[in-house]
Amino acid sequence: MLDVTKLLEEIKASPYQEMEITAPQTGEVTFGGLAVGDKVVGPSGEFREKPGTTVATLTRERNPRPIRATQKGTVMEIFSDLEGTFVETGTPLVRIRHYLSKDEVQSAILRKALHLFRAPERAKYYFTPEVDTKIRAGGLESVHVREGMEILIMSRMKREAPLHYAGPDGVIYAVYFSPSQNVDAGAPLIGVCPPDQVALIQDVVVRVQTEWSEQD
């Protein structure tokens, strides 16, 4: 049985997540007026139409491209010795400390409560068209998975293969992959909630909603 209280306490003891923003491409980097201690925000607005705070600008082929924060947080470190220089892809630019949000805490705990269906091989994964339409129409929880069900498609080396679910029956509660990114072998793909766990999971949700207060 999962000790939600203990898990919550653990997270409360270290409620921050450190994130490194790296250069998604090459280019000449400038940090604008960014300073250590600045608050940054991720995309916001009802439709997430307002972009996050610009933390740096990469100019490549005369095209300045803003690098934006994806999460709310505080700037901990700026690699300002890079200012004005050409950086390779993947170069760390800024470190941000992010206070975990309710959703993140919830999914961190749920990850321990749910049955995790893992990637058999390093590949890209996406839902089968039927499952995908179901999710689009009725949300994740509308998909009931059974042992042996064809649920995902594994794509690698330009070839695709169906992937059958193995594990207890239940509904999908969390998705841990994105279709454009490679998933390493053994990494979780989806989190499934078996019927007998529903009460526990609802408890987690309620507890996190009431006991976790978000901070800047």
Partner: peptide, 16 residues
């Protein structure tokens, strides 16, 4: 050897 985001991105190649 310079790390780039993709071999398919001409901009990366030109910049390098």
């Amino acid at each position: 050897a310079c790390r780039v985001s993709s071999y398919h991105d001409a901009n990366e190649l030109m910049a390098v």
